[in-house]
Design a binder for these strands. Structure first.
Length: 210
DNA sequence: CTACCGATTGACT
DNA sequence: GTCAATCGGTAGA
């Protein structure tokens, strides 16, 4: 793996990274580090599973147009879209251009920093149960609706994504998205093959076999 | 106002 | 594999 020696701040992914098609941003986010700062604590983890939600995508929350709840999905790439599902809080990173619905649901991360805090937040000790699902990330990272619409490309951000690895195509799995009823067959879920930190639903299909 | 339902999770058969 | 829990938004009476 390429070793990054430059400063942490300089590794923050910038706007350009996110102003691309959601499916491209989704795939490229695998291997990157999702960082959350809470007071003096830092939580971070390697992104290992994501899903893309597109413009004109029946499964996307913005499909029927912009409203008070989903407006963040229409922002320019590099903002957050936070929403609740049942009693869980889910985190999307907005992708694509301003005015167009597009986002990447972060479904699983491999814990790196702030593990004790995540264990406290999740009331679980096992590393594999801390952030292996979208709702679990919300709980482990202490994500709240207040973060909806936040810009994650500023250096002062309390949420941001750091550059790290780029996962080669041969190590990326692809499958339909999980838990949706509309557009249920589109292959828009991407995950790191053989990672033990992905969510429990795991149809293993290497890219190229579909 | 009530009814319904979802980009989920965790406990249980 | 199956299923209940019981949030917040939205549609309809």
């Amino acid at each position: 793996m390429k070793v990054l020696t430059d400063s942490r701040a300089s590794r923050i992914l910038k706007r350009d990274f996110f102003i691309r098609k959601p499916e491209v941003v989704a795939r490229d986010l695998l291997g990157k580090i999702l960082v959350r700062k809470i007071g003096s604590s830092t939580i971070s983890g390697r992104i290992v599973e994501v899903e893309a939600y597109l413009d004109n995508d029946e499964a996307a929350h913005g499909f029927k147009g912009k409203n008070a709840r989903n407006q963040s999905l229409f922002k320019s790439g590099g903002h957050l879209y936070v929403h609740t599902q049942r009693h869980h809080t889910l985190l999307d990173i907005v992708a694509g251009e301003e005015g167009i619905c597009g986002g990447v649901l972060i479904r699983a991360v491999e814990p790196i920093e702030g593990i004790e805090l995540m264990q406290t937040n999740r009331k679980r000790q096992n590393l594999h149960e801390l952030a292996s699902g979208p709702g679990k990330i919300g709980e482990a990272y202490g994500i709240t609706r207040d973060l909806d619409g936040m810009d994650i490309t500023s250096q002062k951000g309390i949420m941001l994504v750091e550059d790290a690895q780029t996962i080669p195509q041969s190590q990326i799995g692809i499958s339909p998205r999980i838990g949706i009823t509309k557009a249920a067959t589109a292959p828009l879920r991407f995950f790191v093959l053989n990672s033990p930190y992905v969510s429990r639903f795991r149809p293993i299909k290497p890219v190229g076999s579909v």
